[in-house]
Design a protein around this nucleic acid. Structure first.
Length: 532
RNA sequence: CGCGGAGUAGAGCAGUGGUAGCUCAUCAGGCCCAUAACCUGGAGGUCGCAGCGUUCAAAUCCUGCCUCCGCAACCA
């Protein structure tokens, strides 16, 4: 955990070979929730996502589509922006590896590595497929020696290539792992890196290609393009202006030790982020990130979401029918961040109903109704702990806030949100404990009734604020119904009992209407079916 | 022996040494402010199997085995 008041968080930059699906939405949404929460709490934030646009596959797909690679990626990246827009992703920047600001700097970095003697010119030997113009490894071609792509026989071939000297920085990397136990989590991922890649002996990494041209050219030797990973990984610093005329952001969000740097990544790209990226940074004499958090994969009905299986979930229709908040909430709350999870229509509907409609939505609805009925719609003054239950709900609320913040800071986003559920459940229980409808019948108990209403309004306010990073639209609807003005929707207010005194509530539409499980499950299943 | 993950109540999951928990479903009761919701309680688990493993104490650590899944090939 960190006390740093500034941070930099990144998603992987996605590969624009096809449309994005709910898996990409998952990763990006979780990063967004983290960023929004921290901003709300006064942290200075830089949140980056982007697109990794080079490589042979793009070149090939573009050709098949009858476009230039640049035209091809432009079209797909437009779709990225649209999805992030619909999902309310609050990224501060969007980097594309074909942008000048990136290309030029990557070339400089390569030159620097050459000069440092971190990279040397050698020869790459592998299995070559003439048809696909691609090299494959032993495991990829299998015992049959067939191209994994076109299934044709491959042959041994050599090509001139540049190599990165991985062993030069290996000891330093291992020491870094030891000194920074939070660097790579969950820890099983670190063990995997060490046992699978490092212990058997790390080979030098081939960092150039001559078999295709859609990439960043090496200035010193223009027939080579730079390996996509060396190209892609550096996006994290080129986006901040590293090596440019203006390094202000880079200084602030990377070089300053008071800035916490977090990369959120998927398991399949852990190797590049956990081994090579730190080494590249060492070559450049730069600091390493504080955390690389490996999230799980979102599976479909017990099998992985994949284009060939045709079981990819498209986020758009879900957002359209249930709202962006429900989709964001489901992703963050249902799947324990860091573990694998699976998307299921039943769980989706259940989450919406149980947490959002029944617990939170209904709590707001019944509270606002009672304030209107008993106090003409005005939230009564706060007069301390009046009923025997007020003290407990106040201290419970504080405990929830504290736990929530600690969990959020440690990227335990799912657990943090569960704390908010506990608070809304506790508030529902508080209603039964205090029985306001009974208090209302006795004029002598008017103060108790007033106190109950105030405590309820406050509990809902806290829930709304803690949910705000997730429920980006509904949280404001909660505040609207409580009559809280825009200027008073500040995070610090959640500790301030009394801040709601005298506000005029507005009965609005149901926050989250209860979903008919049978109908909606069928609807989502049909959506998934359409992809087959 | 390629690498990694998982096996806990009918379903889905949490739980890394100290009385087995959560959501949904189910049953009984309560309440009536509310979105057939909310509150209380019950039933339902030999925590994949084995070791009579380590320990005062194991879902949790160790050893072996079984089953499922992911990666290695589009894909976070």
């Amino acid at each position: 955990m960190s006390n740093k008041k500034r941070f930099y968080i990144t998603t992987p930059i996605y590969y624009p070979s096809a449309k994005l699906h709910i898996g990409h939405a998952y990763t990006t949404t979780l990063c967004d929730i983290y960023a929004r929460n921290k901003r709300l709490r006064g942290y200075e934030c830089y949140f980056l996502t982007g697109a990794d646009e080079h490589g042979q596959k793009i070149e090939k797909n573009a050709k098949a589509a009858g476009k230039t690679p640049q035209e091809f990626v432009d079209g797909i990246v437009e779709g990225f922006h649209k999805l992030w827009d619909v999902l309310e992703i609050s990224n501060d920047d969007f980097i594309r590896t074909t942008q000048d600001r990136h290309v030029k700097v990557v070339q400089d970095i390569f030159s620097k590595m050459l000069k440092n003697d971190d990279i040397y010119l050698g020869e790459y030997e592998g299995w070559y497929c003439k048809e696909c113009e691609a090299f494959w490894t032993d495991t990829q071609v299998g015992d049959e020696h067939l191209c994994p792509d076109c299934k044709r026989p491959v042959e041994k071939a050599k090509e001139e290539s540049y190599f990165y000297k991985t062993n030069k920085y290996l000891d330093k990397l291992l020491k870094f792992y030891d000194d920074n136990p939070k660097f790579l989590t969950p820890v099983s991922r670190k063990n995997e890196m060490i046992n699978t890649f490092i212990k058997p002996g790390l080979e030098d990494l081939c960092v150039s290609r001559t078999s295709f041209s859609w990439g960043i050219q090496i200035r010193e030797n223009p027939k080579h393009v730079i390996y996509v990973w060396l190209d892609a990984l550096t996006n994290y610093i080129t986006a901040l202006g590293y090596g440019s005329d203006n390094e202000e952001k880079f200084k602030k969000f990377w070089q300053d030790p008071d800035c916490e740097i977090i990369h959120v990544i998927g398991a399949d790209i852990t190797r590049f982020h956990a081994i090579y990226w730190p080494m590249f940074l060492m070559s450049l004499g730069l600091r390493l990130p504080d955390r690389e958090f490996v999230h799980g994969l979102l599976m479909m009905r017990d099998s992985k979401m994949s284009k060939s299986k045709g079981n990819v979930v498209d986020p758009y229709p879900l957002i359209e029918r249930y709202g962006v908040d429900a989709v964001r909430y489901y992703l963050a709350r249902e799947i324990n961040f860091g573990s694998d999870g699976s998307f299921s229509p039943e769980q989706f509907v259940e989450r919406c109903n149980a947490d959002l409609a029944n617990s939170l939505g209904n709590l707001l609805n019944r509270t606002v109704s009672m304030i209107i009925k008993y106090f003409d719609g005005v939230i009564p003054e706060y007069k301390g702990k009046v009923t025997p239950f007020d003290g407990e709900i106040e201290s419970f609320t504080e405990t929830v806030i504290k736990s929530y913040e600690d969990l959020m800071d440690d990227l335990k986003i799912t657990d943090a949100l569960a704390m908010v559920n506990e608070l809304s459940n506790r508030a529902n229980k508080y209603i039964d404990e205090t029985t306001p409808w009974a208090l209302a019948k006795d004029e002598a108990k008017k103060d108790e009734l007033a106190s109950v209403m105030h405590h309820l309004a406050m509990s809902i306010f806290v829930c709304g604020m803690l949910f705000k990073p997730v429920l980006v639209k509904s949280s404001d609807r909660i505040f609207d119904q409580l009559g809280i003005e825009e200027s008073n929707r500040a995070y610090e207010k959640i500790h301030e009992y009394g801040c709601l005194s005298g506000l005029k509530v507005n009965k609005g539409e149901q926050l989250f209407p209860r979903l008919d499980a049978a109908v909606e499950v069928q609807f989502i299943k049909d959506l998934m079916g359409e992809n087959k």
